[in-house]
Simulated scan of single mutants.
Amino acid sequence: MMLWTIIGMAFVTAVPRVVPVFLLEKLNLPEWGRKWLSAIPYAALGALILPGIVTVIEGEPWIGLAGGAAAVTTAWLRAPIMVTVLVAIVVVFLLNGF
């Protein structure tokens, strides 16, 4: 029974990831459709990151927002990802009062 459960979970996890690859490859989408679909990963990333940013220090969401703003600014300047992460950590650390 456990083996069938694992196989079933693997199937329902894989199908939504694999099927769109084959379907979207065959579709001839208009330019606005392609732009809309290309924005989905950024929207999902924002939805995953923003709650963590505003709750990094309990009761002081501005500290997390400042760290996030520092990370966005550093990334905008095309710094390497480790530099971006370290800048955000240092900003939150300093604003939290060590």
Rank of each mutant, 00 (worst) to 15 (best):
L24W: 05
G8K: 08
I57V: 14
V72K: 10
F22A: 05
S38R: 04
G46M: 06
T84M: 07
W62D: 12
L29N: 05
T55K: 14
L45Y: 11
L29P: 00
W32M: 10
G64P: 05
P41C: 02
L95S: 04
E58H: 05
M1F: 07
I7T: 07
A39C: 10
L27W: 06
T73F: 15
P20E: 07
L23M: 10
T13M: 14
L50N: 05
A75Y: 03
V87M: 13
P51H: 13
I81Q: 07
N28R: 11
I57H: 02
F98I: 13
V12P: 00
G52A: 05
W32F: 10
I53M: 15
A71E: 00
E25H: 06
A47L: 05
P80K: 13
W4Y: 13
I57K: 05
E25Y: 08
T84H: 01
T5A: 02
I53F: 12
I7E: 00
P51A: 12
I63E: 02
G33R: 03
F22H: 02
G33M: 05
V19H: 06
V15I: 13
V90W: 08
I7V: 09
V87C: 10
I63Q: 00
L27N: 04
L65F: 09
A14I: 07
V54R: 09
A75L: 10
A71K: 00
V19W: 12
A44T: 03
A75Q: 00
T73A: 14
R78T: 11
A47E: 02
I53W: 07
F93T: 12
I40A: 01
L37T: 04
F11T: 14
A70I: 01
K26M: 02
A69N: 06
L50E: 08
T13C: 08
W76K: 09
V19Q: 08
A75K: 09
A66D: 12
P61E: 15
A14P: 03
A43P: 03
L86I: 12
